[in-house]
């Protein structure tokens, strides 16, 4: 039988890893919702965020400063990519943009290898303190990661429901042509959404960096999980993404406590099961065409 202490630390671990998945998946989800693109290059901004965090924390000694820098740089890079590449291909078929984004991801990983080399880099954990929850010592940093992701969820919710640009994005998720027909520059909405997505992916990378080693392939390592999160939650749904991120996080964490290989296999099995029942995920939209 499983040890209670192990279980609690397992749950916390699952929550924190789920938070990271959530931060990345939300960008994918938003981009799909509004622009109908599958932006695989979000995984690149995640790596960029992590590497910038590494570099800045190496120089300044502060990981928090690094994560902030990583978030900003990831946002800037995503802005550049959006302007240079996506602007030309929004009109195209979804498979077309997906292939292109995969090219950006692969190319970007090449650039990262070029700049930082192949060797995995460690990022120090900013706080080693542990607090006691129900008799178990839990690292505070992981809790902070969870809190940050919940704050981001709240922020995104407020942004989408309370600001006019957020409302326009929600409207565009339903029908971009009509938003354009009202006289709103939808390409500006696209850019804003893409930068938000890239920034959040960068934040995910920065926050994840101290928990793992930073290496050029890191985006590809989490890729499968992020996609499982997005697919289970349903593309285009923020709520679904949150729920499925924490679900996948728990499955990965608790699963690995029971039997190590389950960590990889169980989310996949759940994904297949959910797709069998609902081919568009838990909260996915049934619309594909605009």
């Amino acid at each position: 039988m499983m040890d209670g202490q192990l279980l609690i630390s397992g749950v916390i671990f699952g929550l924190s890893i789920g938070s990271i998945f959530f931060l990345m998946a939300i960008g994918l989800s938003l981009c799909f919702g509004l622009m109908r693109i599958i932006s695989l290059d979000q995984l690149l901004y995640y790596s960029v965020g992590a590497y910038i965090t590494y570099s800045i924390s190496l120089v300044t000694g502060s990981m928090w400063l690094g994560a902030l820098g990583g978030l900003v740089v990831a946002g800037v890079v995503s802005f550049a990519v959006e302007r240079l590449i996506y602007m030309r291909i929004y009109e195209r078929d979804i498979t077309f943009t997906m292939i292109t984004s995969f090219g950006i991801l692969i190319g970007g990983v090449g650039v990262i290898k070029f700049i930082w080399g192949l060797v995995p880099r460690p990022v120090p954990i900013p706080m080693v303190t542990q607090i006691n929850i129900l008799g178990t010592d839990v690292p505070v940093y992981r809790l902070i990661v969870v809190v940050i992701s919940l704050l981001v969820y709240a922020g995104i919710w407020l942004f989408l429901n309370r600001t006019i640009i957020g409302k326009a994005i929600r409207a565009g998720t339903e029908n971009v042509e009509h938003v354009e027909g009202l006289g709103i520059n939808v390409y500006r909405l696209f850019t804003i959404t893409f930068i938000i997505a890239g920034t959040l992916s960068g934040l995910a990378g920065g926050l994840h960096a101290p928990l793992i080693m930073v290496d050029p392939q890191m985006g590809l390592h989490v890729l499968a999980f992020v996609f499982m999160v997005v697919i289970i939650g349903g593309l285009g749904s923020i709520k679904g993404t949150l729920i499925s991120a924490f679900l996948v996080g728990q499955v990965v964490s608790i699963g690995s406590l029971i039997y190590a290989p389950l960590a990889q296999m169980a989310p996949f099995a759940i994904m297949l099961l959910i797709l069998l029942i609902r081919p568009t995920g838990l909260y996915g939209s049934k619309l594909l065409k605009r």
Partner: peptide, 11 residues
Amino acid sequence: MSYNIAKMGLK
């Protein structure tokens, strides 16, 4: 662009 046309008052 169609949003500019809409903005100019042709909707």
